[in-house]
Design a protein around this nucleic acid. Structure first.
Lengths: 203, 203
DNA sequence: AATAAGTTAAACTAAATAGTTAAACAATAT
DNA sequence: ATATTGTTTAACTATTTAGTTTAACTTATT
C-alpha cells in the first residue's frame, strides 16, 4: 500500500464519515461521498466494493474511536465521584467534536439492530459494571446504591451527557429562545451533570 | 366524507405511522404502507398525493398526540415535586406505548431541521418554563434553583425519561445481560427518575 | 523501458421506487 | 336510475441510484 493509497483511502473514509453522519445509511449517496472525497465514483467502488462495506467500515471505526476514549476511566486511581466527573468532562468534550454521533448511532442501531450483536461483544458493558462495582464497593455503601440500582444509575449518566447532543436541533433552538447558546450550555453541563448525579446519589 | 372514507383514511394513517416509525422517512416504502393498510398503491396516492404529504400528516399528528398528553401538568394544582412525579409517570407510560417515538422524532428532526421551525411555534417551551417558574417561585427558592439552571434541569428531566427509549435496542440488550427485562426496568424508572431528580435538586 | 497499480471519464445496466393513467367495478348519494 | 365517489387492477413513466464496464491516462515499482 503506497502513500498515495493511504491518502485516498483516508479521504474516502473521512468523506464517508461526514455523509453517513449527516444523512444516515439510507440518505447517504455514493456520488456525494465521491464528490466530497474529490474522486470519482469508479474509484470509490474500487476501494470499497459496496455501500454496505463502506458503511460498516465507517461504523466500526467510529464506535472504536468513541470506546477508546473512555476505557481509561476504569484504569485510573480515582474515587467514584472523581470518575463521574472524569466521565462527564471527557465524554461531553468528545461529543462536542462529534455532535452528530449520538443521533447517528442511536438511529442506525434502531434501524438495524443486528449491528448491536457485534457491538455487544466488543463493549461488554455488564463486565464494565462489575469492575466498577468491585473497585468502589466501600464507597458505594456510603451512598444508597445497591446492585439493582446500577442499571438505573448508568443509564441516567449516559442519558445526561448523550441526550443534549441526540436532540441537538431541538435543544439548541429552545436554548436560543431562552437567550443561551448551545456551546455555553454544554460547557456548563460538564459540572452541572457531575453535581446533579453526585447529589442524587448521596444519602 | 363518508363512514367508509374515515375507515380507509384512518387505516392509512395507522399503517403509515407504523412504517414511518419503524423505517423513517427515507426507509419507508409507499407500497409497504399500502400493503399494511390493506389497500393498493393507487388508492394510497388517491388519499395522499405524495409521500411527503403523508409523512407530514403523520408527523404532525404524532407530535400533537404527545403534546396533548402533557399540557395538563401546568394546569394542575400540584407542588413542584408532585409535578415531577406526575411528569415521569405520565411520560414514561406514554412512551411505553410508543417506544419508537423518541428515536423517530430525534432522527427526523436532525435530518430535516426545518420541521422544528413549525414545531417551535406550537410548543413554545420557553413560555412553558416561564409559567412553571412563576407557579413555583417560592418552592424553587427552597431548592438551590436559579433561573440560569432551569435549562439544565429541564433538559435533564427530558433526558432521563426519553433516553432509555431512544436507545431501546442498546439499553434492552445490556439489561438482558444483567438479568433484567426492559419492561421491569422502565416500570421501576418512573419512581427512580422522580427520586433522582428531587434529590439532585435539594439543598 | 516495461509492468503494475491508481485514477479518470463516460456511458452503461439493473433494480428500486414514487407517482400516473385508464378502464372497469362497487358502493353510496341524489 | 343515475351520477358521484371509492376502489381495484395492471401496466406504464420517470427518476434515482448502486454498481459495472471499458478504454485511456497517470503515477509508482521493478
Amino acid at each position: 500500500m503506497t502513500e498515495n493509497d493511504k491518502q485516498t483511502e483516508s479521504r474516502i473514509l473521512e468523506a464517508a464519515s461526514e455523509v453517513f453522519l449527516e444523512k444516515g445509511m439510507d440518505g447517504a449517496r455514493m456520488q456525494d461521498i465521491a464528490d466530497r472525497a474529490g474522486i470519482n465514483k469508479s474509484l470509490l467502488h474500487y476501494y470499497y466494493r459496496t455501500k454496505d462495506h463502506l458503511f460498516n467500515t465507517v461504523f466500526e471505526k467510529t464506535v472504536n474511536q468513541m470506546l477508546m476514549r473512555f476505557a481509561p476511566v476504569l484504569d485510573q486511581d480515582l474515587t467514584f465521584e472523581e470518575k463521574i466527573r472524569f466521565f462527564f468532562h471527557e465524554h461531553i468534550d468528545f461529543l462536542m467534536n462529534n455532535r452528530r454521533l449520538p443521533s447517528f448511532l442511536l438511529n442506525e442501531i434502531n434501524r438495524n439492530p443486528e449491528r448491536m450483536t457485534k457491538l455487544m461483544e466488543k463493549i461488554e458493558v455488564h463486565k464494565l459494571w462489575d469492575t466498577l462495582h468491585a473497585q468502589h464497593k466501600k464507597e458505594l455503601n456510603a451512598y444508597n446504591i445497591n446492585r439493582e440500582d446500577f442499571p438505573q444509575i448508568m443509564v441516567s449518566v449516559a442519558a445526561l451527557s448523550l441526550f443534549p447532543f441526540a436532540g441537538f436541533e431541538i435543544v439548541s433552538r429552545i436554548l436560543e429562545k431562552h437567550g443561551t447558546g448551545f456551546d455555553e450550555f454544554i460547557e456548563k453541563r460538564k459540572d452541572f451533570a457531575t453535581q446533579f448525579v453526585i447529589k442524587a446519589l448521596k444519602k
